[in-house]
Design a protein around this nucleic acid. Structure first.
Lengths: 216, 216
DNA sequence: ACCTGAACACCGTTCAAGT
DNA sequence: ACCTGAACACCGTTCAAGT
């Protein structure tokens, strides 16, 4: 409420002792790999072992497992920004839109941790929300182009995009090894459903900015 | 491998002592309600308390928590069968299809336990698979009518339906209280994407019958 | 036969003792 | 200042003792 933390990560990186700084990095790297491979279910003991530190050290840097999850998800922000840049660089409006969707869903499907990133505790974190808001502005631009060109249905909003992308990404998790490309099939259905022609009016309106309210 | 269990539930209901039979029913009812409200995360202790029995009794009737989950999901089979019958009764092919999808997604979105029913351990259970196979045959019929009438895209298979339905249902879980009707919006997108006109070819092919293989 | 609750194993988290 | 691992709380599961 009082001080506004402008450093994206939130963690005070000031004056960390050399070994502490290195240990923090190790834990983050270990968690990043473990989460991507096995999802958020991996125990903290396994992560600490993988990082070569005690569990106490892990919790010193990340006071809760959720905090560690947030840190890893924020790390993935770079990839999402790249997806956005790649889409914005595309001259054809429909191509730009499909590029965006394809890259988001592909990334979400292949990274188990991103596939599970829709859990309410994570979405409720203010840093994650800030990141999402930032990305939404870029998505807005892509959608505007598509609508102006008459190729994209007019009633889709930027908030719909992460919902649709995560719906596919999350559901594809169980096909990750057996049919790793299956997400393309359902993305195809959704993309056809988002075309301007032949679209039936959508009811109800898009989700509000309070993506987290209910449940937990 | 040797004996084929034809009784859908699997549980031998022979000669259960009166109190045992009643306790089993109580546990199942308590679990059914608790799972629907809070999802599979509720502790067994809470379920046992709600049923008015000791945890030992719970585990006597359902040797594992997963077993209890399976029993509850199988109980929901009746509702899914009803959905199918309602759709088959619809004369208009497109109406029949939308009725089916609407009812499935509605049920999946409002029942927290069904929303989480896609976890691999559950889908791997032979009884759940048998149930799914049975339902798929009905879905097949609905799809055939839609294709024959030229209203439904020809490359959609019955296996796609539960995948698409659960994708929406699972993702809508976090909007259950804040925007309980939001699922209609995304079902709208998907339905438009499944129309015959304006459909782009789907890649890759549908998921195989081995819905569970990888991951766990 | 069946019920019960104390006991066990496992995992996230804490903290007293070390350097 | 920071690291460590033993200790704690919690939850699924087991089992010896009861009826």
């Amino acid at each position: 409420m009082a001080t506004v933390d402008t450093t994206r990560g939130g963690e005070a990186q000031r004056t960390l002792r050399a070994d502490a700084r290195r240990n923090r990095e190790r834990v983050l790297a270990a968690a990043s790999a473990a989460f991507a491979e096995e999802g958020f279910d991996v125990g903290v003991a396994a992560i600490a072992r993988r990082a070569g530190v005690g569990t106490g050290t892990l919790f010193r840097h990340f006071p809760t497992k959720l905090e560690l999850e947030v840190a890893v998800v924020l790390e993935r922000a770079a990839g999402m920004s790249e997806n956005l840049q790649a889409a914005l660089a595309e001259p054809d409006p429909w191509e730009a839109f499909t590029t965006l969707m394809t890259r988001i869903v592909e990334q979400t499907s292949s990274d188990r941790c991103l596939g599970q990133a829709t859990k309410p505790e994570l979405l409720g974190d203010p840093r994650i929300q800030e990141l999402q808001d930032e990305l939404l502005r870029g998505v807005e631009e892509i959608l505007r182009r598509g609508r102006d060109a008459g190729v994209l249905r007019r009633d889709v909003t930027a908030e719909d995009i992460p919902v649709l992308a995560s719906a596919i990404g999350t559901t594809m998790e169980r096909f990750r090894t057996s049919q790793p490309e299956l997400w393309r099939r359902y993305l195809g259905v959704v993309l056809d459903g988002l075309r301007a022609d032949g679209a039936a009016p959508l009811e109800p309106g898009p989700p509000g900015p309070d993506l987290l309210s209910g449940t937990c």
